[in-house]
Design a binder for these strands. Structure first.
Lengths: 153, 153
DNA sequence: CGCTATTGTATGCAAACACATATAAATGTG
DNA sequence: CACATTTATATGTGTTTGCATACAATAGCG
């Protein structure tokens, strides 16, 4: 028999999660103090960011919601506000009359891009000291693998 | 000259952050659906968890706040509610009459421990499939290093 | 010392949020 | 094809949040 990779025990998993979570909180707190998110708070930016990576026809509200830590009703109302501000649009889904497709408007795409640039610059300032290129790459690989294994189910 | 470790470029840092952030959102969404957080939501649990790891005399409200993604006034009011529920107590700081020390009550410690146990079990169910023991250890090391480099400044 | 600046927490208030539920369309079933 | 069930989003309502600011105590400085 080949060596079976021993499954991680509860303690190891909990420590990894705690560290991941705390790291995210720490970075988030730093980012929130920056002026990038005065025009659009982080949750709103994240909505635009997710829409940017979506097909041109947009995303159904429920699908968009899956990527966010926000209840469905709260997202629905956030979309109301973003529509009022002209950053996104609600389009009836031609394939399902119950559904709505949310899309970025041109103004929304412009705002996302502008904030995104500043954001990325600041991310770099905050993170680049702590890890080397190689380590950042490893971190990306590990978190990606974790997302992939958790997400689908 | 020895090889200088080349500093990560903006793109690499942004990809790592995005992946880390998205991973955290994915796991969080899974955890939130579990019944662990009916008695206490995740933010509230996190407050108790942070108090658990604190010295017996407790933590000043401001210090506690540094570990949370919550504004100082919001934390102050959350503490109000937790005091009402008998889970934490406000104690005047003997060294500084402006400050308040927040401590876990016995009931609060009991609740934290009970929820914590279930939480840890579920964390393990969610995460253990995706990464090996060794990878979890690496993930922990990398996120720890990142926290350490970001936090102090 | 007296007096301004700073620090630590709390409160008024409007905005945003979650929960339960309503509405409306699609799907499944006898 | 009627009718219950499920799916997708929206709305009513009380709670929680953040912003601005008030309050209270310490620190700093002439």
């Amino acid at each position: 028999m080949a060596d079976q990779p021993e499954p991680p025990n509860v303690r190891e998993t909990a420590l990894a999660w705690e560290s991941l979570f705390r790291c995210q909180v720490t970075i988030m707190r730093r980012l929130q103090t920056l002026p990038d998110f005065r025009e659009l708070n982080m949750r709103e930016y994240d909505v635009l960011f997710n829409l940017k990576r979506a097909p041109d026809c947009g995303l159904r509200l429920g699908d968009l919601n899956e990527h966010l830590l926000l209840s469905q009703p709260s997202l629905s109302r956030m979309i109301d506000r973003l529509v009022t501000r002209g950053l996104v649009a609600r389009i009836a889904d031609p394939a399902d009359a119950r559904a709505v497709l949310i899309t970025l408007t041109e103004a929304g795409a412009e705002v996302q891009q502008r904030i995104g640039r500043a954001h990325v610059r600041h991310i770099n300032e905050v993170m680049a000291e702590g890890l080397s290129r190689d380590e950042l790459c490893q971190l990306r690989r590990l978190t990606q693998a974790l997302s992939d294994s958790v997400g689908p189910s």
